[in-house]
């Protein structure tokens, strides 16, 4: 008599093969399977359909489904690369891969640029940055006068917008974050190093016979 029951697993939509996902990312097969435990928890929090919708994403971030947040929406849209309105497991793993401590710095710089280039023009424009600053003030208890916001924008653009055309291009962004590396701190999640320890139950659901590391 064994300790575990053998069960026929229900196919999960969008559940890509962990071995293939591991080959495309910095994650090992075990880490991909541990990420699936996290994915299952988030994707079943409102509708148990094997996909993360925006409401579930907000709920996981804020523990509050009613809270709309510009930045969480932006991150969701970048994870949802196929623009389906939902994040499948492959999207989830490939996007989190950019946040891995070992991911290339260039990938982090590029993802961060897309995050702030909200309208996708290929430039971070002053109006976009102002909109994000105002959104930050709304979500935090920080209060800044409009004049102060303009001073912050002037200072930021005088440093980052080298050709002074009122917008930050990819090359200017690259130089700016290289001089201000703290701006990339949000792009690294130390949790991803210990994902198998955080979600040890992956071993009971593993699809691979021998877990490669």
């Amino acid at each position: 008599m064994g300790c575990f029951h053998s069960t026929v697993r229900k196919p999960v939509p969008g559940h890509e093969n962990p071995t293939i996902l591991a080959s495309q990312t910095a994650f090992s097969v075990s880490e991909v399977e541990a990420l699936f435990e996290l994915f299952k928890s988030i994707s079943s929090s409102v509708i148990d359909d094997g996909l993360i919708n925006k409401e579930e994403f907000q709920l996981a971030l804020f523990k509050n489904r009613k809270k709309e947040n510009l930045f969480a929406n932006r991150i969701f849209d970048l994870f949802d690369v196929k623009q389906k309105g939902v994040i499948d497991f492959g999207d989830f793993v490939r996007a989190l891969n950019v946040f891995h401590p070992n991911a290339p710095q260039e990938d982090k710089i590029s993802f961060c640029f897309k995050l702030y280039d909200m309208d996708g023009t290929g430039f971070i424009e002053r109006q976009e940055v102002k909109q994000m600053l105002i959104a930050l003030l709304c979500e935090s208890e920080l209060k800044l006068a409009d004049d102060t916001i303009e001073v912050i924008l002037d200072k930021t653009f005088s440093e980052a917008d080298v050709d002074q055309d009122g917008k930050i291009d990819k090359s200017e962004w690259h130089n700016f974050v290289t001089k201000n590396p703290s701006l990339l701190k949000i792009m690294t999640l130390p949790y991803l190093r210990d994902i198998t320890t955080t979600f040890p139950s992956f071993v009971f659901n593993s699809e691979v016979e021998e877990i490669a590391t």
């Binding site: 935090s140 920080l142 200072k155 201000n180 701006l183 949000i186």
Partner: peptide, 24 residues
Amino acid sequence: PAAMNAFELISMSKGLNLGNLFDT
């Protein structure tokens, strides 16, 4: 805050702190 650049301020947003996803 006025001494910080705009992106330093923006990166303080809770919506950009994906570490919260792991707090299940």
